[in-house]
């Protein structure tokens, strides 16, 4: 770990200003990802702006009938909130499927969105990684990549985004509220928050330097059956091989897909809107054809193609079974 300075401002505006005042500054909230990366010198901030005292730690109703989740709300609290459990079940289910109880107690809503990939070559500082050291190459391409991206990847990076929560947020059409060092605030649709790797895999979001996430806003509840199915090699504390966030509805006795997003497939939560309403009757293979169009798996992760189809089919079956109960 490199030596760093530290401050704990009392407001979001002060925090955003502090983050640009000192070159190399970073925000820290729960620290569940950043501290690990600092120990490995993958992240080497010169200055930490601790945002734990800026407020934004509540879940409040919005005028539009949705909820505004403060950036500092812990994952455990968010998943357990009765409004979230009742109206946004897919989000609650996604959160509790991630990490461990201890990590969820500490991790924050904004931090979860901004966590970095778990690509093992990103974590190994002796390996080439364009995300860690731009221009150094990608050791995962041609290496061990059974759990890497099959969609939206590039010649520079095939890493995935590890968050479960973000997949549910994507299905729910959440928006991210931020404040910039200038004091200006804006709202970013979650679809636009994360970038695909392209030639700049080190650029992971559209946030500007010093721009601080203050809240995540959920639109008014969509209703429907809300499921989150995470496929993984052990029952807990493992990142998704594939995950499915599904909001389904019954219309005229038929199951239809209202919202559908995937984790474990790409550099960001993967949602293909055309797949949601294009197919009447929720036929898994037809939906998967749309979702997987353009997929470019490696030899080692090509199993994800049938896995997506099968997991989607099983999740739709669960929705049907849930609807008929």
């Amino acid at each position: 770990m490199k030596a760093f300075t530290y401050e704990r401002p009392a407001s979001a505006a002060e925090a955003a200003a502090a983050a640009v005042r000192i070159p190399g500054a970073k925000f820290i909230a729960g620290g569940t990802n950043l501290l690990d990366l600092m120990k490995l010198q993958i992240e080497t901030p010169t200055h930490l702006v601790d945002v734990n005292s800026i407020g934004f730690d509540r879940i409040e109703p919005t005028d539009q009938g949705g909820l505004r989740i403060g950036a500092l709300v812990r994952n455990t609290d968010l998943a357990a909130d009765p409004r979230i459990r009742r109206d946004y079940g897919v989000l609650s289910r996604a959160i509790v499927s991630g990490a461990s109880g201890q990590l969820r107690n500490k991790a924050t809503t904004a931090g979860n969105l901004l966590q970095r990939t778990r690509c093992p070559y990103f974590y190994d500082t002796d390996m080439a990684c364009n995300k860690r050291t731009p221009g150094s190459g990608c050791a995962a391409i041609g290496g061990l990549n059974a759990n890497h991206a099959i969609l939206g990847a590039s010649e520079a990076c095939i890493a995935t985004h590890p968050s479960d929560m973000a997949v549910a947020m994507r299905a729910l059409d959440a928006s991210v509220e931020t404040v910039a060092p200038s004091g200006a605030s804006r709202s970013i649709p979650i679809a636009d928050l994360h970038c695909l790797p392209g030639n700049t895999p080190h650029v992971e979001t559209v946030l500007e330097p010093g721009e601080l996430i203050t809240a995540v806003t959920l639109p008014k509840p969509r209703g429907g059956l809300q499921l989150y199915r995470k496929v993984r090699e052990r029952a807990s504390y493992a990142f998704a091989t594939v995950s499915v966030a599904l909001i389904a509805k019954i219309e005229e006795g038929r199951l239809t897909v209202d919202r559908l997003a995937f984790g474990g497939l790409a550099h960001k939560p993967w949602r293909v809107e055309q797949a949601e309403h294009a197919v009447a009757g929720a036929v898994a293979d037809s939906i998967a054809d749309v979702v997987l169009s353009g997929a470019r798996p490696t030899e080692q992760n090509s199993y994800k193609l049938p896995l997506v189809r099968r997991t989607l089919a099983a999740t739709l079956e669960h929705a049907r079974a849930g609807a008929s109960r």
């Binding site: 461990s100 778990r118 093992p120 070559y121 190994d124 050791a139 029952a235 807990s236 990142f239």
Partner: peptide, 29 residues
Amino acid sequence: LHEAAHVDPRYGNWVNGDLAEYLMPVHAD
């Protein structure tokens, strides 16, 4: 069901060299 340490045959390094990626059963298993 779980355990395997993987060597990258190009470099000879342990690829999954931490306890997040080197899977062993957790309580839930």
